[in-house]
Design a protein around this nucleic acid. Sequence first.
DNA 1: ATCGTAGTTGTACTTCCAGTACAAACCATG
DNA 2: CATGGTTTGTACTGGAAGTACAACTACGAT
Lengths: 208, 208
Amino acid sequence: MRKLPAKLASQLYGAAELIAERGLDGTKIEDIAEATGIPKATIYYHLDGKNAVLEFLLGDLLDMIAGAVGVAVASEENARTRLEAAVQAQLGVMLEHPSLCRALVGDLGRATRLLELAAALRTAFYEPIEQLLAEGVSDGSLRQVADPGAVALSVFGAITLAGLSAAVEGPSADPSADAARFSAAVSELVLDGLATPGSRDQRRSEPL
Amino acid sequence: MRKLPAKLASQLYGAAELIAERGLDGTKIEDIAEATGIPKATIYYHLDGKNAVLEFLLGDLLDMIAGAVGVAVASEENARTRLEAAVQAQLGVMLEHPSLCRALVGDLGRATRLLELAAALRTAFYEPIEQLLAEGVSDGSLRQVADPGAVALSVFGAITLAGLSAAVEGPSADPSADAARFSAAVSELVLDGLATPGSRDQRRSEPL
DNA sequence: ATCGTAGTTGTACTTCCAGTACAAACCATG
DNA sequence: CATGGTTTGTACTGGAAGTACAACTACGAT
């Protein structure tokens, strides 16, 4: 499995729609061959099999997201603003590639062993976000939280499920508008929380 | 596919571990038969195939979560407290059944068509949470948000990814302690947000 | 211009496994 | 003990993933 030539890579995207629709299971290699225009033999020459198609797509999406988030996180703004930008960046990429997202939720396990995925996500997300949290504490734009790792994870979850749901509900006419709408909602939640100031004290009321 | 006898149902759980480990792909029906002690022919007598095994497990997990969340949401407390309870309820169930969770993320698409899943989740989660949000506004314990649907979704995402990650990272010695730890982190995020009061004004600084 | 290397593709083949068929046992319950 | 649902072993079928391989192309190096 050397590094796939660019032309083939771009053709492979034609498979995403298909897989998103029918699932990897319901998609024969021959179907993929037909849809992408890459003959089966060629696919097997470059890729290690059906799952590798998905692996490739997953890797690509992850790269895109990581790239966009990386840019968002690297600006000069305060941490809070950069966090907002990161939210928007991830949602932007996801909504631009809804079928990729759909294909992947359905067959994640075919694309990667879950542990590898977790590791990849860790470097692509938690670490940036965790660092952002730390920087936010320094620059005073974000609160200190008890468990930054878990919080970073939850933030990622909030963004991701919003994006996924948008991808699963039919594709929208204006992805970037959707992205903006969802970003606003997610940012509102993640930054300001849901509690009213008044209720804030009775926090540790129940014993657990 | 009539209604599976209880004994078989319980035996089927033995398959979750297996599927979690190897993925549904890497798990032959014969493996499942061996692991559960249910002979292949019997499996096919009751279930419509390999995917149906997963469907059954998914349905069950969903029911457990929906049940627990339902109870949490139904108490007499204010909405804010009930939201916290809901978080803890979902995480509790997930961490009690880590291999079920792992099996499912990996092969979601095999268990359900994604749209059906979305629909099931909608009734099991967004609706309760959305209602909670509304009630919180009434009883003054939660803020009014612009897009309750999207926010409910994000809350669900935050909880779910936290739980999933816990399930994927090896199983813990004390699931309920983990649940408590994650609940605290998620609740902190979801209720209080990350922003400092000071940074709250410069909100809509960037365009779009 | 030719040789070697890497990629491309069609075709035919093998392998493996999900799912099926079916018959024989196994229970209940009347 | 007869009937009807269940249980299970065994043997079989079908279909799709992946492999083998040979013919062909493109092209850079010598």
